[in-house]
Nucleic acid binder design. Structure first.
Lengths: 220, 220
DNA sequence: TAGAATATTTAGATTGATCTAAAAATAATT
DNA sequence: AATTATTTTTAGATCAATCTAAATATTCTA
């Protein structure tokens, strides 16, 4: 059984290692969790003893299978609560996080399964991040900035990073919306802009900034 | 700012002093909170320093005004969460408590006001206990077993202690339901049974056991 | 590759929350 | 009122989580 603080460390380490890095460094954890490296050093030794991470002195840590399972449970709770807060309590995207940070530590398997059912088993949270199921399996495909798609590949718009009125209005003008299909026709190396097809209609140009802020789920 | 543990102590002390006792003893707190008197002794000195209780050595403690306010906030949260769990997540009365014990410590005024609105500003929780408003004011009148009403007094059925199908069916047969008006016509000393009027119709007899399990809000 | 810079760990302290054992105060009883 | 029993408090330890300062490793760079 992990304490609230241990859960937070584990979750942070899991997130840090998502970015591809094999071993997560002490300093990176300290930065992310807003604490001192000395405290992290202590804690990762404790988490190693508990079997949720593998720790080798001076070489950073790596989440174990057991650790991943535990981390995904916390992440599942966090994201389900976010859906609840936004869809039923009228929270906006930016108000949601710190409350979900607290709610994610409530311990009750029954609660979380009932909440999941109440919400209609959502697959993604309000930020577009996938919600693992009770077994830790992530069904939704990971989302990536449209910018990263290559010529010829297709996807569906699932979320936006920037939710300012200016940006949303621009999307509207382009004919882009959540759920719209997009296909990359051409990319321009010079300025990283791209030409895309939205819902198989006429091609439109979008700038690098716009493409970075549209999250798509790749298909095929 | 109180810690989670301090909140639990304060809430417990508040509840213990509800039962009329002026000064709450160290041992009573230890019993209620399932801890040792020595730990309580430490803690009540800390709570005294924080101004939420008044402590005099060997004489027990008393909640201050500030303390009462803090305790009522926690109780408000607990009871609102109970309403949510029962009405929206299909929890039964007995499954609710330990989850609400955790949820009551979530710190977010916005969350609790939004939850309150979402639930339709309920005045009582699923056990019939009153929910204080945001300022700590209790609007609902306290509920008592129908058994305790005297001849001639009236009330409204607000809750039941026993929620077994057998009991609920019996109530149905009597014509009793949540919100029904009742008036006590006669009480029988011998077996503590009583004759009551439900919604001003024909009088019915109910046994001691039934009268104990119906909670009413007295009126007039 | 040697020295400098950076990252990491250890040592030692502190705070919150708890415990056991012993001391002190209050309450009960003969 | 004196003694006994009970309650409460204090003293001293322990564990989780954190910190600062110092020691040790690793990495970078000239």
């Amino acid at each position: 059984m992990l304490s609230l603080v241990e859960e937070n460390y584990l979750k942070t380490i899991y997130h840090l290692s998502e970015g591809g890095r094999e071993q997560v460094s002490t300093n990176a954890i300290a930065d992310a969790i807003n604490t001192k490296p000395a405290s992290v050093s202590d804690m990762i030794q404790r988490l190693d003893r508990k079997g949720v991470i593998n720790y080798t002195k001076y070489q950073g840590v790596k989440v174990t299978g057991e650790g991943q399972e535990a981390a995904l449970k916390v992440i599942r709770k966090h994201r389900l609560w976010e859906v609840f807060l936004v869809e039923h309590l009228n929270f906006s995207w930016d108000e949601v996080h710190e409350v979900a940070e607290q709610l994610e530590h409530i311990k009750s398997p029954l609660l979380i399964e009932r909440l999941d059912a109440f919400l209609g088993h959502p697959k993604v949270d309000p930020h577009g991040d996938p919600i693992p199921d009770a077994k830790g399996v992530i069904r939704a495909k990971p989302q990536q900035p449209l910018q990263q798609l290559t010529v010829g590949s297709q996807g569906v718009i699932r979320a936006v990073k920037d939710s300012s009125p200016a940006f949303l209005q621009h999307l509207d003008k382009l004919g882009a919306y959540l759920g719209a299909r997009v296909k990359v026709i051409e990319t321009v190396d010079f300025d990283n802009s791209m030409q895309i097809l939205i819902d198989r209609t006429t091609p439109v140009f979008i700038s690098n900034q716009v493409a970075e802020n549209i999250l798509v789920e790749e298909s095929e």
